[in-house]
Amino acid sequence: MNDARTQPEGGEPAEPVQEPALSVEPEPVTDDLARLWRPLKVGEPLPLFEPKPPSGLSYRPDTVCDGWSTKELHLRLASVRGYQHRADGSPREDDVAAAWDRRTGTVVFAVADGVSAAEQPHIGSQLACRSAVETMLAQVREGDGFVADWDHLLKTVRWQLVEQTRRILRHSEAGAEQTARLLATTLVAGTATPAEGEVRIQLVSIGDSGAWQIKRENFFQVVGGKMAGADGLVSCAVDPLPFISGVIRPTSFPLEQGTVLLVGTDGFGDPLGDGAGEVATLFRARLRQPVPPLGLAHLLDFSRETFDDDRTLVVLWLRTETPGGRP
C-alpha cells in the first residue's frame, strides 16, 4: 500500500531505531475489521458508500502511507483519496514523497495537489513530488545538508512537468500553457536538517498547499493555505506549477521541542481552517506523539460533510526520549 518514495539513501539507516514502538502489545484479533476501520466522524459525517475504482491506465492506489525514524526525527506520511473522487471514480490527485540523506541526517519531503481542472492532475502531482525530492536530495548531498538553490529546485520541477507534457502530447514545442492544462499542481517541498544542536526546517510553497505547526496546543500556519478575499469569501485563486511568480524564498525556522510539523494539501488545510475547530482538536489530540503510519492514514480519512477532497499529510516530530511509534 505504498507508492511514495521513502527509501532512506544508501540502504539501511545508519542508526536503526532501537526503541520499542508506542503500540507495545498488538491488539487481540477482532471479528469486525470493518467496524475497527470505520472513518472517524467529525461533526456531521459524509454518507457511507462503496468507492468506485479509479479511472486511468496506470495503477493508482486509494491510500498510501509510510513512516520511519532517523536519529533526530520521526516521519509519518499519508495520502488518501477524497470521498468525492471515490464516489465518481476519479484517481487520487494528491501525492507525497520523502527520503533521507544518510550522511547529514537530512530528511526531505514534498506534498502536491494536482489541480482538478487539469487533464492528468495525478501525474502532475506525482512527478512534482518525486522530482522535488530527488533534486532536494542531490543538493543536500552537495550542500552539507541544505538546499542551496531553491529557485533551481522549482525550475527543475517545472522543467520535468513540461518535458512530461511534451512526451504525453508528443509535441516537442509544448510550453507552460499546455503543461498547466495537462499537469498543473501545487507543491510544498522542504527539508529538515540536523545542525548545531537543532533541526532546521526549510520550506517552499507553490499554490494553496501548506504547512502548520502544533505548538503549545495550538495550530500555527507556516506557509501556503487558502486566503480569504477582501470580502471574506473563500478565494478560489490558485497559482500552481508550472507557473512560478518571481523568486520564491524558503521559509526557515528551527523545529522546537514539543512542536509537531505538518505539511499538507488543502484537503487537510480547508477542514483545519483557522485551527480552532473540531478537526484541529482531533489532530492536536492524536498527533501529540508519533502514530503508526496506518493510524495516520485512518486519522486523515476522517469523515465530515462538505470536506471531500483528497488529503495528504507529512508529519515530523523531533526525536526525544519518547519512543517512536511503529505499526
Binding site: 477524497g82 494536482g114 489541480v115 482538478s116 494553496d208 494539501t265 471531500d308 477532497d309
Partner: peptide, 10 residues
Amino acid sequence: GRSLTSASPQ
C-alpha cells in the same frame, strides 16, 4: 458542488 473543495474550486 463537486468542485467546491478541490484544488481549483470553480
